[in-house]
């Protein structure tokens, strides 16, 4: 089939070129006039920096400078007797051979593998359930899952510490009543699971809100089209919602990598209840804290913190790499 039109393709191309050059000329004129309008020698670009200056000042003062200071500290060794000496990377070399640090890193890695899939799975289920519109009182449901996140983690750990109590905690009491064995939440073999439970309880709501917000931004017409094609609620969830949630899930996952490797508050508070299980190097952050404030070894603590940061960067990269490859294949 041929199309007969009044203009030849060459003419169309020429007209297009003309329009494009005109547009370019107009924008150049605009830019020139804007430059003329800007006063006092402060160019447009520099004015932009003025606007971000408040942020930059705080970023430099409260983040970069302390970071650099910590890096600087990590190159020295201060002793109670004999003062401060420059040791170069000596603290880092020590850290690589420190069984207590390595043990802690492996422990939080295990924690990550154990806890994060459960938490994200629960958050995803809750978000999909609320979004499905099939729940009655969905707002109440949403709020009640989110509330634990609003509870300070110190309070949460104390509360769970009470619940886990091996003698007089409610679970132990219940077990006594029924006559079964008392669940040992605070022993070496169950501690990681008990901590994972506290963290899951605290942060599922947070992840759920992120996922739910992402779900709300999916265009309605996709659902309509799917419905026309005969897809049910499950099929829509599986083929439309979950793929669309990928970026949000990835975000939650990255937050969880950081959160897991920096685990501190929960073990620090539960330590009081089970000092024989949670020692001063149970997690790398706990170890760094104990080094700095108990052992007065600020320099080594700085090196440990830096290495922990490095581990987190590597772990985050591995997670990103793994997920993006899976998406490509």
């Amino acid at each position: 089939m041929t199309i007969t039109t009044g203009t030849s393709p060459a003419q169309i191309q020429a007209a297009g070129r003309q329009r494009w050059t005109k547009r370019r000329r107009r924008s150049e004129r605009q830019r020139r006039s804007e430059r003329r309008r800007s006063t006092g020698g402060v160019s447009q670009a520099n004015r932009g920096y003025l606007f971000v200056a408040p942020f930059l000042i705080f970023f430099l003062g409260l983040f970069l400078l302390p970071l650099l200071y910590a890096a600087y500290l990590s190159l020295f060794r201060e002793r109670l007797v004999g003062g401060t000496t420059f040791v170069g990377l000596g603290n880092y070399a020590r850290a690589f051979g420190d069984d207590r640090l390595i043990g802690g890193v492996l422990r939080v890695a295990r924690f990550f593998l154990l806890q994060v899939p459960i938490m994200l799975g629960l958050a995803l289920l809750a978000a999909l359930a609320i979004d499905s519109g099939l729940l009655r009182l969905s707002k109440v449901f949403r709020l009640s899952i989110f509330v634990p996140y609003a509870v300070p983690s110190a309070v949460a750990a104390l509360m769970w510490g009470y619940l886990y109590g091996p003698d007089y905690g409610p679970f132990a009491q219940l077990a006594h009543r029924i006559g079964t064995g008392v669940p040992q939440f605070l022993t070496a073999s169950h501690m990681l699971g008990s901590l994972a439970n506290i963290v899951t309880w605290e942060f599922t709501g947070y992840d759920m809100i992120i996922l739910y917000a992402a779900l709300r931004s999916i265009p309605q017409d996709l659902y309509e089209a799917a419905a026309v094609d005969g897809a049910g609620a499950w099929r829509i969830a599986w083929s439309i919602k979950i793929p669309a949630l990928r970026p949000a899930l990835l975000l939650c996952l990255l937050f969880s990598v950081i959160g897991s490797f920096q685990l501190f508050t929960e073990p620090n508070l539960v330590q009081r209840l089970a000092p024989n299980v949670i020692d001063s190097a149970y997690t790398p952050n706990l170890y760094a804290y104990s080094l700095a404030f108990t052992s007065q070894d600020v320099n080594y603590a700085a090196a440990v913190s830096f290495l922990l940061g490095l581990v987190i960067v590597v772990a985050s990269y591995v997670v990103l790499f793994a997920t993006s490859r899976r998406a490509r294949s």
Binding site: A274, P275, N276, V277, D279, S280, S290, T294, S295, Q296
Partner: peptide, 18 residues
């Protein structure tokens, strides 16, 4: 260096008690 001694006690003797 009492802090360190207490810390080490908790990680060794205390742990063995528990």
């Amino acid at each position: 260096f009492l802090d360190e001694s207490v810390n080490d006690w908790t990680d060794t003797v205390g742990k063995a008690l528990g």
